[in-house]
Nucleic acid binder design. Structure first.
Length: 507
RNA sequence: GGCGCCGUAGCCAAGUGGCUAAGGCAGUGGAUUGCAAAUCCACCAUCCCCGGUUCGAAUCCGGGCGGCGCCUCCA
């Protein structure tokens, strides 16, 4: 029951041991809020939300921090184009981001610091780096001097010598091309903060070093982000933080794989939009990219997207398509039918079932029930997989196995319609299912039933049709009963006949 | 060119040295049903190719072929 975590720094799975016993600090690189979120931005949050759930379930006290980078060249550009302030641009996109996170069931984030609210810490850190000889001021900018850090490049196995870069526009102000900006001098009209080096704003990487230090301390447990951030962002974070503090910054660097829209189109976010005319044939919209995420969520539901992401191991590349999400959704639906079955059986909602909140609490001795012996076995397998670097993809298979077992038991023991049946074991099995699905952040709350004013009327009309059809069936008037059912099917309503009467559902 | 990842059934995807290679979607056959739907049962892969290590490899090593990422302020 030890958790093992793949560490990008060591390129191996390591046994998880926290800096402070029983406590875990996680810092996830959040978005730079210059545009609406696309689905790629959701991957990290969904994964680390799940990681936190599992660590909490395993008995840890977890502090999950996701930052917002709200000062950056792209934000300034956007603000200028639209003639509004950088803050307004940021606020719009933060609202969009939060809305999308909520839709995907990401509710485990404890703190969301903003770069602009950490300016004192950023300036103090830059000053300390200069003082310690790792950074230098140059014409109002401040650069980190990579050659002063003997360990520079350790995360990505690069050497300073191998850094081919030409240094970009700032080359003339840098001592060597690999040096990166800690502080950038403000141009006229740009948002800026006062500093010992003149008015300016932070470079890209320093805000994460400053925010993580302020909230989680100089050494913390897990730092996460997309694979694309390893270099240069995380490499530079390590350099800054460790040169500043002379101690390891992070115990485990965890990087999630990226989403791809389709083999030809390439990646989803990032630079593609800058490729001008090429624009890869509108792949952003096709991929639910910029502007498309909210609509995608409306069409497919956030939970489907979450499940789709969690079906695959977090370090894998996921080939994204709406079809693939819909397919994952079919699997999810089978659980919902099982939950409806639970409701028919017990008269209670699956979503009201009490379930263990921790692994210890959930441990149980199955005793004589064949069902519970099997359930316990799959629960163990599920937890073993989660222990192994949060293998959610493998864990999901155990959930399907459990669902099958429960359905099978209900079938074989003919529990439906049997009022006198002993449901103790079945309830226990469902409760274990609830315990484990909760770790993935799925099936947490009952799905929203249509709250529109006419839903009651629809329900009554449906009941009328069902009653009429039942009476036709009783008279063996199958022509009539089939017409009713076929017409409903054509409308997207599925009827299911049962001994206790028919039920209906959309889809 | 440098650093790194990946190639498992029609599709998606676990497994990374040893029981019958998870699970999902799709499909086929069966149980159930008036017929369906839902559910259950059964069937459905020897793991890109070649060579090596080993008693034994999808799993390790070498070489191919193929796909992808980073090296450019993209999660």
């Amino acid at each position: 029951m030890t958790i093992r975590v793949y560490n990008t720094l060591s390129k191996t799975k390591e046994e998880f041991q926290t800096v402070t016993p029983g406590k875990v600090g996680i810092y996830l690189c959040g978005p730079t809020v210059y545009a609406e979120a696309h689905i790629g931005h959701m991957v990290g949050p969904v994964i680390f939300d799940t990681v936190k759930r599992y660590l909490v379930y395993s008995g840890y006290e977890v502090n999950l921090v996701v930052n917002i980078t709200d000062v950056d060249d792209k934000l300034i550009k956007k603000a200028t184009e639209r003639g509004i302030s950088m803050e307004e641009v940021a606020n719009e996109n933060i609202a969009d981001y939060l809305h999308n996170l909520a839709a995907l069931g990401v509710d485990q984030i404890d703190q969301m610091p903003k770069a602009t609210e950490t300016m004192d810490g950023i300036i103090a850190m830059v000053a300390e780096l200069i003082e310690k000889g790792f950074a230098y001021a140059s014409e109002g900018d401040v650069y980190f001097e990579v050659t002063k850090d003997p360990e520079y490049g350790k995360l990505t196995n690069r050497t300073v010598e191998a850094m081919q870069g030409e240094g970009g526009e700032a080359a003339s102000r840098k001592r060597s091309p690999g040096d990166f900006a800690l502080w950038k001098k403000a141009k006229a009209g740009e948002p800026s903060w006062k500093s010992p080096w003149g008015d300016g704003r932070p470079g890209w990487h320093i805000e994460c070093s400053a925010m993580s230090k302020a909230i989680l301390g100089e050494t913390f447990d897990i730092h996460g982000g997309g694979l694309d951030l390893i270099f240069p962002h995380h490499e530079n974070e390590i350099a800054q933080s460790e040169c500043c503090h002379a101690k390891p910054m992070v115990k485990y660097w965890m990087h999630n794989g990226l989403l791809r829209s389709d083999p030809a189109a390439g990646k989803i976010g990032g630079r593609a939009e800058r490729e001008g005319a090429a624009e890869a044939g509108g792949k952003m919209s096709r991929s639910g990219g910029a502007g498309g995420l909210a609509k995608l969520i409306e069409r497919q539901s956030g939970e489907r997207i979450r499940f789709f992401l969690l079906r695959t191991h977090y370090r894998s590349t996921i080939l994204f398509s709406e079809e693939a999400i819909a397919e994952a959704g079919i699997g999810l639906d089978s659980f919902y039918r099982l939950f409806e079955r639970y409701e028919r059986l017990t008269g209670e909602s699956f979503f009201d079932l009490p379930a263990a909140k921790t692994r210890k609490e959930g441990d149980f001795e199955p005793k004589k029930s064949e069902l519970l012996v099997a359930i316990a076995k799959h629960r163990d397998a599920y937890l073993e997989k989660m222990d192994d670097d949060f293998n959610t993809g493998g864990a999901v298979s155990e959930l399907f196995e459990m669902a099958r077992l429960i359905n099978k038991t209900i079938d074989q023991q003919k529990l439906e319609g049997d009022k006198s049946a002993d449901l103790t074991n079945i309830k226990k099995a469902f409760s274990v299912l609830r315990e484990l699905t909760g770790i993935l952040g799925i099936f947490v709350t009952a799905p929203e039933k249509s709250s529109s004013g006419d839903s009651e009327l629809v329900g009554q009309l449906m009941q009328l049709l069902i009653d009429v059809r039942a009476s036709a069936r009783q008279k063996k008037d199958f022509e009539m009963s089939d017409v009713i059912r076929d017409r409903l099917t054509a409308m997207g309503v599925t009827l299911e006949d049962r001994k206790e009467g028919a039920t209906w559902r959309l889809g």
